[in-house]
Each structure stands twice: as C-alpha cells, then as structure tokens.
Design a protein around this nucleic acid. Structure first.
Lengths: 209, 209
DNA sequence: CAGCATCCGCTTTGATACTG
DNA sequence: CAGTATCAAAGCGGATGCTG
C-alpha cells in the first residue's frame, strides 16, 4: 500500500495493515496459530495466490508475521504471528464487535469456514455460570466439526468432535451464530432449519459480553 | 470495495470501512463533528477529490455518514457521522493504540494537521490529579494553535488559544506528541528543537492510559 | 504437492482540469 | 463551495506455469 503520508497514528496503522486482505490474513493466524501457505489460502477464499504471497512478504517486513521452517518429517514453511502481530487482537475485536449488526442472514455468495467461529466465540462469549462444570457444545456447520468448551468463565472453540456434548447444533452458520449469541431464539432457529439436540440450558450459559 | 464474500464479522466490517481513505474520513468527523466538503479535503491531505466524493456517497449508503443542509446564512452542505458511524470510535482507538510504536520521528513527507492531535489526546491521555484545578496547555504545531484542557480526569484538545496557559509547547508534532505522552523527556525534546515555556508539572499530570 | 512467480484483463486510485 | 470529468498509473483477481 502506498503510504498516506500523514503524521497520524491511524494513518500509520493503515499504512501497515490497511491493504486489502491483510487483516484477514492476521485473522487466520490469530485463530489457528502457525499455518502453512495452503492452509492460509484455504482459510481465505477469494484471495489470489500471488496476493497472498505479496501480503505475507509485506507483513513479514512489517514485523507482524514470521516464517518458520517446520522440523522434519513435515519439513514445510509455517507462518505465524509475531507478538506485534498478536497485538492486533484488540483491533480485530473492535471491528468484529462493530460488525455485529452486519451479520444477518447468510448471503448466497458468502463463503464460510468453520474455524471462523473461533474468534467470535473467544472474544465475545462468556460463561455466565463459571463455577458449574464446563459445558461442551458440538457445532456442525461448514467444512469441519467444531467443539465449543467453557473454561474459567470463558468460551473457546476448536476444530474437533466431542464424545458426549451437552448440545449439538447443526445448520447454516447464521443460525448457529444466532443461537449461540442469543440473538435468535431456539424455536425461530428451528423454524429456519437449525437442527438442535441436547440441553438448551447449556447453550444459554453462553452470553455475549 | 468489492465484498470479500465471507460470512465473518471482520470481513463484513472491512466490506464497509476497509476501502482506502474510509476510516480517515471517519477520523475527521469523529474529531471535528459536522464538516463541509472543503474542510474534509483540507483535513485529508493527499486524497483526490473524486475519491472523497465517492467515499462520502458510499459511507452515506452504509449509514455511517449523513448529509445535512446547514441553515442560512451559511447555506452549505455539512457531513456528519451517524450514531452508527460514531460507534467506530473503539475501532479507531484500537488501531491508534496499536500504531503507537509507529509514531517515531516526523518523516520528511509526512503531512500534519493540528487537529489530528485531538483524537489521541482524548482517547489516550488522562489527568492523574483530577481533583486539582484543571490544567491548560497551549500547543503550537502545524496549521493552527490548539488548546489542551483537563476536565473530569480526562484531557480534551480543541483548536484555539488560551489566555493564560500553564504551559506552551512549540515545535514539530513528533516532539509535541512525545512530550505529551511522556515518551520523550523535556531535555531530549528541547535538544531536538522543542520550545517549552511554563510549568512542566502541568504536562506531567497527563498520563497515557 | 507446497510455495510461489508471471501474465493479462479489469477495477480502483491519483492527479489534474473543469463546472454549476 | 461542492463537486464532476478525464486519463494515466497502480492494484487486484483469475489463470496458469514453474521449481524443489
């Protein structure tokens, strides 16, 4: 990106992360940690491969991303956020929170990856009964199953399958997100196609903050 | 901006405010309130006028900016943030905070407008002795004089001149910002060309949070 | 296959000139 | 004052090719 050439913090920040795709690349690594080039590409549907390579170079130059050689037997390149890159979390949080009202029904052209659930779950959901036993919720939406677990008053989502989840949500991501956030009641979500099994109270322990 | 086409809050937010210049336009209105087209242009050195017109239209469409007809005798168009636009403040705050380390010495090609001081002062400075009488600091840097005043434990900056300021800072914006933030000591700033008169303790009451 | 680089058409941006 | 018009340059998206 060309510099704005303004002595202003906001402009300087945008000089570095204001390029198209840059913050979404940060999102991927903030969500999943160290990633291979191809994993990044899969998590960023729509990006041109040369742009991904360009951005990774620029972010590396800016000290936001570092490149690691994975040890054998994998022997591949891994991309990971530096501490400076991780420090962008409050920025993504603020933007994501502001975007709340924009997350309506899933559009016909909207791509979705299951792991995109992890960031909002971690940043915006709390466990309103942190002293009871942890809750496990299985989500089936998108390209892979996800598990949401509560730990220490917070909620975390990771790819995987739970053995005995308290609840299972299956359906499009807008319905799943709607129910998890409490924005959408269970009957309304079911009417729109969500499949729900288990204990709804387990879901209601999660609360936006 | 073309949509990323991703069902993810961050991507949806960037669909709306990720365009080049958009957040800087928001900065201007968040800092100064309702503004005329030409005032906006003056506060955004480097923007092409057609781009400013385009962005204002897009931001208006997105419900972030509204257009007002100023009453006579002014009879001009004013642009102002809607509540939805003002809700972007935490985003600018997070980005600005992250940019701290990027605000080194003023670059040869960096433009500067005095009122850019207002946002960092309001968002990052507190009065560490809120119960004492308010402090007034005059800043002379850039295109117009600015006054910083403490009120209710916070600091505010506005264009203008104080009659009897506790301190007066004159010099390049990097030195002024350095001294105000405490990042730069007074002797070091003076050695680099800052002119300081008055009570340094008044400045030291301001503290980054 | 992972990790790019190159090429090409299209869109966006930037600089400047002009207008009601 | 508040834009529109025009045109060149840069950036982006998509396809494809190359290399270890």
């Amino acid at each position: 990106m060309r510099s704005y050439g303004q002595y202003c913090g906001l402009a300087k920040a945008l000089d570095v992360v204001g390029d198209r795709w840059s913050l979404l690349i940060v999102r991927e690594m903030l969500t999943l940690g160290a990633l291979r080039y191809t994993d990044l590409r899969d998590g960023l549907p729509g990006i041109a491969t040369n742009l991904l390579a360009d951005r990774l170079r620029e972010l590396e130059q800016a000290g936001i991303v570092k490149r690691e050689e994975a040890p054998p037997p994998v022997a591949t390149t891994l991309f990971r956020l530096t501490p400076r890159g991780e420090a962008l979390e409050p920025v993504l949080e603020a933007l994501g929170r502001w975007a709340g009202p924009l997350m309506g029904a899933l559009g016909a052209r909207d791509a979705y990856r299951s792991h995109w659930l992890a960031l909002p779950v971690r940043l915006y959901l709390t466990d309103r009964q942190p002293n009871r036993r942890p809750v496990t919720i299985q989500v089936r939406s998108g390209d892979q199953p996800m598990v949401i677990e509560t730990v220490g008053g917070r909620a975390l989502a990771r790819p995987g399958t739970a053995t005995k989840p308290d609840a299972v949500l299956t359906g499009t991501p807008d319905l799943v997100m709607g129910v998890l956030s409490g924005r959408l009641g269970l009957p309304a979500a079911r009417a729109r196609g969500l499949s729900f099994q288990g204990d709804y109270a387990a879901v209601r322990r999660l609360q936006p903050r």
